[in-house]
Design a protein around this nucleic acid. Structure first.
Lengths: 192, 192
DNA sequence: TGCACCTACTCAACTTTTTGAATAGGTGAG
DNA sequence: CTCACCTATTCAAAAAGTTGAGTAGGTGCA
């Protein structure tokens, strides 16, 4: 019942096929709620059965047909009801990288450093993608103008959170890399 | 096989019962890998069967006996092997609050603002807890001294990441609150 | 004395999520 | 022309995670 809310959030952006959603659907909701294709197709099926979404089959040339889903009025009501629901439970975090860092001292220091560096690279790429999306949303306007004019502010706000998250990954990664390097050097010294 | 790594990370801090781990085990690993008691008891059982941990029954007065688990040499080898494993997959994030914010414009604006405010309160409390743990780890030393002397830096580094995450929640929350308030006011105006 | 909640687990049933593969045509590179 | 990969989806099965209840004694408070 929780994936459902994420799917509705995604469909607020407009029609989408299961495949669109699986690919990350415009890189918005996918950033704070991930799901596999399977989950999405199944959930969309259920939601259609319950009348929250309708499917419109679009026949395509040179491509398999696709079913574009969109929110029904009942679906929009469900969005409203969902946002008014009792406080969201604390986020589920599951970050392997941090588990590795926690084990760093008892593990393979160099491999952990490489993992941190990898994450930083990833964060840099993601940040660039976010920035492109931001520019598209702003459409030339200043942030102030955007907030004054845009019909929706939700997607922009979540985008900002995503960006600050990745920036923190970079900031922290640099620090962690430096400290792990220090530790590596210390170990090398000791074994001499 | 992934929960297992988090359990090993926790056991690097020393012996723990399933119950200890379930409670959050010193608020370290639990911050980037959550699990229910059931999962932990089951996983510990499996790990014991595979020789990664050993259990030591401690009889207690006025309290049920407990089984304290600790890493075996094979468990320590597994930690080493784990940290050297191929790059960690990107973190699984699943934050209902952001889904709600994404839906804010189509949903109940006031409820969403309340949810953001709730998260901020939670972040403040968490930050305070983190700070206490940090002081305990530092044990009066400066950070520089800590990194030079401490036998393990992993737990401190992950703690720093947790702290920066919560600080970002606060920073972003303030901004989001302001913008959502703006929007609320705008809607009130329009309906007059 | 009763109630609520804490320690310390275990069992069973359930739901959710992940993984792997199958189908079926289309596109692009060498 | 072949190979790899893209669109678009479905099926089946395994792994992971959640929920609820049960046991059994202990503490704290009014």
């Amino acid at each position: 019942m929780a994936l459902r809310n994420a799917v509705m959030a995604a469909l607020l952006e407009g029609e989408a096929s299961g495949y669109d959603l699986a690919k990350g659907f415009d890189a918005t909701v996918a950033n704070f709620w991930t799901a596999t294709p399977q989950q999405l197709y199944r959930e969309l099926e259920r939601m259609a059965a319950e009348g929250l979404v309708t499917a419109r089959v679009v026949e395509q040339e040179r491509r398999p047909d696709k079913r574009l889903f969109s929110l029904t009025p009942a679906g929009r009501d469900a969005v409203r009801a969902y946002t008014a629901e009792p406080p969201a439970r604390p986020p589920v975090v599951r970050d392997e990288l941090l588990v590795k860092v926690q084990c760093a001292d008892a593990g393979d220091l160099d491999a952990v450093r490489a993992a941190v560096a990898g994450r930083m690279e990833w964060a840099t790429a993601k940040l660039a993608r976010y920035e492109r999306i931001r520019q598209r949303l702003l459409a030339g306007r200043s942030e102030e103008a955007y907030f004054a004019e845009a019909e929706r502010v939700g997607p922009y706000l979540t985008l900002l959170r995503g960006m600050s998250f990745e920036r923190e990954n970079l900031r922290w990664g640099e620090l962690a890399l430096r400290r792990l390097e220090q530790r590596s050097a210390f170990h090398r010294q000791q074994s001499e």
